[in-house]
Simulated assay, not measured.
Amino acid sequence: MTGAQAGGSAAAANQPEVSNMLTFDIEEWFHANYDNVVPDLSKGSSFRAHMDTLLRLCSEAGCKGTFFVLGCIGENYPDVVRAIADEGHDVASHGYGHELAYKQTYEEFKADVKKSVDILENLTGKPVLGYRAPSWSIVERNLHYLLALEELGLKYDASIFPVKTFLYGIPTAPTEIHKPRVNGRELDLFEVPMSVMKLAGRNMGYSGGFYFRFFPRFFIKQAIRSANRQGKSAIVYLHPREVDANEHQLDLPAKEHFIHYYNVRGTEAKLESIMKSFRFTSISEHLQRQHGLKW
């Protein structure tokens, strides 16, 4: 019995059918969307080491996940993308070059996603089923961009965060997996929104990125248990750079630096503990089992 099975059976004793979803946004340390920030690319990168860490953690915990990969990562690290697929994880699209979707025209967005999908499918020999926008950049004003994903034959989107921040979010968006409606029509596409909890009457993230680094381990575990007791699945998301406190950092203003880098030092151990305490799978496997996804 693996650590995930042992820990998961204890953590999910009241709701054994519920599995959570493990996701990673696969990009370099310098992929961000802050104005007037120009990274020094001559510094190099520890990207391969980060990916080795993530794949090792998944293997040790007996977890499968969804890796949302930039197309340019596929070009620069084809062996890494193949390794993700060879270990049984989903390879999904994160776009090509980490451009914000709401700063692209519809046609630019569609071409960007298609370019990334073509690169990833050529590398893995498997269909790309899903997409997540860089920095959660599907918002109310470009929600119709989901039509492009449907047109490209993708099966799900995981770009919507039902919160409101200065960078992203649709606070009124449904918090359950659903088929979104655009222009009065239900799309043949699942929307898999990021997990939120209610805090002081407002939606708040708890299980990914800054929220994962900010909240203590016991708090995140309790939030996941609470969701599972209600029959709901939680979604974890992180970036490769978040498991390495020694990776290069962007020169950001104080608030942005705090959001981007707070408590990176504790992320790997926290992630390992949570992965071994709950049942995790990929988004496509979850949709196949729970929502009848076929492809």
Rank of each mutant, 00 (worst) to 15 (best):
N228F: 08
E107M: 15
P193C: 11
Q15Y: 11
G169L: 01
L41K: 11
E60R: 15
N228Y: 03
V196Y: 04
R48A: 05
Y96I: 01
Y156W: 02
V236S: 05
L57F: 07
D251E: 14
Q290V: 13
L187I: 05
Y156K: 13
F215Q: 08
R141A: 12
N142V: 06
H94P: 06
G184A: 07
Y96G: 04
R213D: 00
E272H: 10
G125Q: 11
A13P: 00
D251S: 14
K110I: 08
C63G: 09
K255V: 12
P78I: 06
E27M: 06
Q230K: 15
L55N: 01
R265D: 13
P39V: 07
V80H: 04
Y96S: 05
P162N: 06
I26C: 04
S159L: 08
F280T: 01
D244S: 06
V192F: 11
G209R: 00
I73T: 10
Q15V: 01
H286N: 11
E256D: 14
S233D: 06
V128F: 02
F47P: 01
F47R: 05
Y106G: 10
A11R: 12
N20H: 15
R185P: 05
S19P: 00
E108T: 08
F68M: 11
T124R: 09
G97F: 01
S273P: 01
D188N: 15
F212L: 15
G65K: 07
C58H: 06
L293K: 07
G62V: 04
R185E: 13
E108I: 14
D40I: 12
L149P: 00
Q222H: 10
L287S: 03
K115R: 15
P16S: 06
N33T: 09
S137Y: 07
L123M: 12
A158F: 02
L189V: 10
L238A: 05
S137P: 02
L70I: 08
H260K: 15
R241K: 12
A148V: 10
Q104R: 12
G292L: 11
V139K: 11
P134W: 04
G62N: 13
T105Y: 05
I235T: 13
D118E: 15
Q15S: 12
N20L: 03
V192H: 09
E151I: 07
V81L: 10
K221F: 00
H89E: 03
Y262M: 14
E17T: 07
H239W: 03
G184N: 10
P78E: 03
Y145H: 11
G201Q: 07
V69P: 01
F214W: 12
F161H: 09
R82W: 02
H291S: 00
V182C: 14
R185L: 05
F190Q: 02
F214S: 07
A234P: 02
W295F: 13
S226M: 09
M51S: 05
M204H: 05
A101P: 03
V163E: 02
S93R: 00
L250H: 05
V196E: 02
N228P: 00
K198Y: 01
M194N: 03
S277K: 00
S9M: 13
T175Y: 07
H144C: 07
